[in-house]
Amino acid sequence: MAFLELDQLSAFYGKAQALHNVSLSVASGEIIAIVGANGAGKSTLLDSIMGLTRVTGQIRLEEKSLIGLSAAGIVRSGVGYAPERFNLFPYMTVRDNLLVGAYTARNNVSDNIAVVHKLFPRLQERANQETSTQSGGERQMVSLGRALMTSPRLLLVDEPTIGLAPKVCNEIAVALKRMRDELGATIVITEQNANFAMTLAERLYVLESGVVKAEGTVDELRNDERLTAAYFGH
């Protein structure tokens, strides 16, 4: 049984279609990566799972359809999202950003905060700093932390390493692995950087112009020219 299943998913911005009949399925506890060049539709795909775009087709989480739910309803169903541009609350402190994430999971606030601080000790040190004054790496941590505060079973992370220094990329990768291994989260990341995707994910989907061009395990796709094509954007 698939944990997350997209069936013939298409997404639209006005009349423009950004996803074309995307089907994919993710097993519980898996880490998968959606790999594609700029403009391939990676963010649109994750936004669509969160109910933020107009779609046709089906999205199921543990057999239950997410279609028609609001973003808040989808969060309540167990999906956490760390979007591309973070969408943090710039004039709130790190702690308050995390607390907003606790909006739907109010019974687990202190447990979840402890988990976040364990994964990202820096967020504990900087608890009272406004996120508008933070570096990109720190913001990514707040964004992931805020998603964790919703007690997610499925975590969506859009380009976790974009613009980050290699050392920080590593930290993020380690944290994502721990979220799966220690918290049991199922994780979907998107990446332009196929190499990073292959170090983290077990399976990949290659997305090009809103269409799934290839899918398979890391070993199957390692030397596939469709992956390199997507990586370099043709």
Binding site: M50, L52, S70, A71, A72, V75, R76, Y81, P83, F86, N87, L88, F89, P90, Y91, M92, D96, L99, V100, G101, A102, Y103, T104, A105, R106, R146, A147, M149, T150
Partner: peptide, 25 residues
């Protein structure tokens, strides 16, 4: 309070609030 912080959140970033489980409406 949770609702008060949610008000701040919506005022600063509506999408960020929505993906945190806050219903902006």
């Amino acid at each position: 309070t949770h609702v008060g912080r949610a008000m701040q959140a919506v005022s600063m970033d509506t999408k960020g609030a929505a993906i945190s489980g806050v219903d902006p409406d």
